[in-house]
């Protein structure tokens, strides 16, 4: 009798839940947008977070609802944007093209000294908390490689000079490193930009820059005067080259007293 009762009760409970669940599965069925799955497949799947969502799946959902533009995926670039447009049946939008990260600092240890010896946590953000960073220049790269660690695409590496280097092949311009850098040394720029740039991030006045760094921009304005296209402007004590106006003539390179106007891709050889 007891055996029958126990079987009946456990079996009955099982049956009861089976019926309830079967009923609930129909009664509470949620129709999901089939396009979301398709868009998830199209996205790179790196879950880098450059779009501002926690991952590609979350972004796909928002793209399908129309809450964010179809070109929200920065690493995916134009190719992904176009295929998403196809799935969603919307007109293709003009994308800005591929972007890459650019390191705006040349101040390796030997040319830009430290103001004290830092022995704390090996992380740029942690170093920044300690008296604003150990580097004498308060704008330059700290060189602890936080950007290298956060890069979801393995595109950054620490060079022999203690500065990060961008592998432009691997870099997707997602901007995760730029957000992680506590000193804002990394800029996200168009991949087909003009080569000349000023690899300095210092907004200090010339005198201060001279004291803390051998390769910092001292805001002497020589390049501004030399540029035939008026592409160079002085923004808060730092020469900035407008890449749309620049034609790579190289006159600024000749006049730069500190020799720091460089061609992108040629700065990496500094040992």
């Amino acid at each position: 009798m007891e055996l029958v009762m126990s079987m009946a009760i456990i079996g009955g409970l099982g049956l009861f839940f089976a019926i309830v669940l079967a009923y609930a599965a129909q009664r509470f069925a949620v129709e999901e947008d089939p396009r979301v799955e398709m868009v998830i497949d199209l996205l790179p799947g790196a879950n880098c977070g450059a779009c501002g969502f926690s991952g590609c799946a979350a972004a796909a959902e928002k793209i399908c609802c129309g809450e964010v533009p179809v070109d929200s995926c920065i690493p995916g670039g134009k190719a992904v944007c176009d295929s998403i447009c196809e799935v969603l049946g919307v007109a293709a939008v003009a994308s800005e093209g591929r972007k890459v990260a650019e390191i705006h600092c040349l101040g390796s240890r030997d040319v830009a000294p430290d103001k004290f010896e830092y022995q704390g946590v090996h992380d740029c953000k942690a170093a920044m908390m300690y008296s604003g960073g150990f580097k004498a220049c308060s704008y330059g790269c700290l060189g602890l490689g936080t950007c290298v660690e956060v890069c979801p695409f393995d595109a950054l590496s620490m060079g022999a000079n203690g500065l990060p280097q961008v592998d432009t092949e691997k870099c997707t311009g997602c901007g995760v490193c730029a957000k992680a850098c506590p000193r804002g040394v990394i800029h996200i720029v168009s991949a087909d930009r003009k080569a000349k740039y000023v690899p300095c991030n210092s907004h200090d006045r010339g005198k201060t820059v001279r004291q803390v760094c051998e390769v910092g921009c001292i805001a002497c304005r020589a390049c501004v005067r030399a540029c035939p296209n008026e592409a160079i402007t002085m923004e808060d004590n730092l020469a900035v080259i407008n890449r749309d106006k620049c034609d790579d003539c190289g006159k600024c390179v000749e006049v730069c007293k500190r020799g720091i106007i460089k061609d992108v891709g040629k700065v990496l050889v500094v040992a």
Binding site: V20, L21, A24, F28, A29
Partner: peptide, 11 residues
């Protein structure tokens, strides 16, 4: 129960 609640919540 958890299965059931999950379905109901989703809807």
């Amino acid at each position: 129960l958890v299965q059931f609640v999950e379905m109901v919540l989703k809807k």
